[in-house]
Amino acid sequence: MKFAIALLAGPQDPAARSALSFAKAVIAEGHQISRLFLYRDAVHLASSLGVQPQDESDIALEWRQFIAEHELDAVVCIAAALRRGVLNEDEAQRWERPVANTGAPWELSGLGQWVDALQTADRAVTFGT
């Protein structure tokens, strides 16, 4: 079965962890994740600049590793990301910002990607409402 998973809350919210646990269980149970979509404050999860205290887990890193390991389609809403200062190399250049803080495995794209995921997945589950 194909799951579309959307996350709306940021890395500091328990939802970022719940969504990852759910996504891991989807794969472990033999199903597919057709797309991950980050919207609203969840876009901060795609930033690679966060530094966590040594005795705390790094949820952004765990997401990146999970996505890379399973070669998932992982999309960050570009409008939400630009507003919150989450930029890849292209956007940093386009808007003349001093640094890019996101990149592979995350891809910046439009809300249409979520609309499409809602249409094509067998189940759509939203976390972090």
Partner: peptide, 29 residues
Amino acid sequence: LLIISRHPPARLAAREALDLALAAAAFGV
């Protein structure tokens, strides 16, 4: 698609809910 919008207008979340509605409608949903 039904979008339930439940934030007051000064919140960015209110605008972002409308953005999804407009994007979905633009794709013919």
